[in-house]
Computed example of a mutant assay.
Amino acid sequence: MPLSEFGDAWPGGVPVQAHGMDADPFFAGEGDLGFARQVVESAERGELFLYPGDQHYFADPTLPSYDPDAATLLLSRTPAFLGVVS
């Protein structure tokens, strides 16, 4: 889906991050990756993070799809994104 369905660009001054696995059939295979790239490219502060793998719910430790390395990296990026000082 094109970003234009929601407006001309991501709202100014609002940071955005997109996280997904590079071989996830839902994220990479169904067009979500293309949409994520559009959003990130249109944002003043946008970042796209791709992790190696094919799982969709890779950050949930209660699921068999959990990937501890990717989840740790995703969660290490979250405080900086939210502006939390540790």
Rank of each mutant, 00 (worst) to 15 (best):
L74P: 06
S86D: 14
Y57R: 05
D8W: 08
P15C: 07
S4T: 09
Y66P: 00
P25G: 13
L75Y: 14
F27Y: 03
W10M: 06
M1E: 05
V84E: 03
L33C: 05
F35R: 11
H56G: 01
P2C: 10
L73R: 02
P15D: 00
A28E: 01
A36K: 11
P11G: 03
Q38F: 15
A23I: 13
E30T: 09
P61G: 10
L33V: 05
Y66C: 06
P2D: 13
S65N: 02
A43S: 06
S76V: 10
Y57K: 05
E5A: 15
A43C: 06
A59V: 03
F6G: 12
P2K: 11
E41Y: 08
A59T: 02
F26E: 00
P79C: 11
V84Q: 07
A59E: 04
L3K: 06
Q55T: 01
G31H: 11
V40L: 03
A18G: 08
G13C: 12
T78H: 14
P25N: 13
V16K: 00
G31I: 12
A18Q: 02
S42M: 10
G13Y: 09
P2V: 15
R77I: 03
R37H: 09
G13W: 08
Y57V: 11
W10Q: 05
V16A: 08
S76T: 05
G20E: 01
P11I: 13
R45Y: 05
P11N: 09
P52Y: 02
T78M: 15
A9M: 08
Q38S: 14
Y66K: 01
L63P: 02
L33A: 12
F81L: 10
F27K: 00
D32A: 15
L63G: 00
V16E: 01
V14L: 14
E47L: 15
D69A: 15
R45C: 06
D67T: 04
E30S: 09
P2S: 14
A18T: 05
W10S: 02
A36F: 06
P15H: 02
L33M: 10
L50Q: 02
A9T: 09
P15L: 00
H19Q: 13
V39Y: 01
M21K: 00
E30N: 14
G31L: 10
E30I: 06
L50I: 05
P11Y: 14
S65A: 09
A43G: 03
M21T: 02
G46Y: 05
A43V: 02
E5W: 12
